[in-house]
């Protein structure tokens, strides 16, 4: 049932699970943006988003409507917990997804480009540069080409003399490492 209030959707999803999908449509863009800007890694942001929704779905019966905004607050409580775990372990939990039968979604090039566009590289560039020199050379070069110069992966790969997948991997690992080291500053 299409409802406007996220709280109504969540409450309704107890008896009508499809309401949760409508809740997902309302809140997913914001949550993906939240994780993208904090992890600086498309795949991790996607995994965290999926795991957060899986945990929210599994625990939807525990939600209590405490007024407007309480559904979003509840969702982001789960999100923050997931993100804290990610920072500690540098990996995303998948327990909730497994519990409700969801599979990990591997991102395609289009996904990666679109999610990276949410990261607002310009804003975080200054903070990233502080820790930039701590990275391994290959990761630093990949980040320089992709993040600082904004070049497409095809060019990054050609410049580094590796495949596009390897280039993506270096960018991904480098960004993740930066995110971890810059915990407070970046997040």
């Amino acid at each position: 049932m299409e409802c406007e209030r996220d709280e109504d959707l969540l409450v309704a999803s107890g008896e009508r699970p499809y309401s949760f999908v409508a809740f997902y449509y309302h809140t997913m863009p914001g949550l993906l943006r939240y994780f993208a800007r904090r992890t600086l890694d498309a795949q991790s942001a996607a995994d965290l988003t999926a795991e957060t929704f899986a945990e929210a779905f599994a625990g939807r019966g525990r939600f209590r409507d405490r007024g407007n905004g309480s559904a979003t607050a509840w969702l982001y409580t789960i999100a923050r917990r997931q993100f804290a775990h990610y920072l500690r372990r540098l990996r995303v939990e998948d327990a909730a997804r497994r519990r409700i039968g969801m599979e990990r979604i591997a991102l395609g090039p289009d996904d990666i480009e679109r999610i990276e566009a949410l990261m607002d590289f310009e804003e975080i560039g200054r903070a990233v540069s502080v820790a930039f020199n701590r990275l391994h050379t290959d990761q630093r070069e990949a980040l320089r080409l992709r993040v600082i110069e904004g070049r497409p992966y095809a060019e990054v790969a050609a410049e580094l003399g590796c495949s596009q997948d390897v280039a993506r991997s270096r960018v991904s690992r480098g960004l993740r490492r930066l995110a971890a080291e810059l915990d407070d500053e970046v997040t």
Partner: peptide
């Protein structure tokens, strides 16, 4: 954002979970 393949697939999986 909701139209990127990842978002569509995640919605499909949640829909399947709801069906289950």
């Amino acid at each position: 954002i909701l139209e990127i393949p990842f978002a569509v697939e995640l919605a499909r999986q949640l829909d399947a979970a709801a069906t289950a």
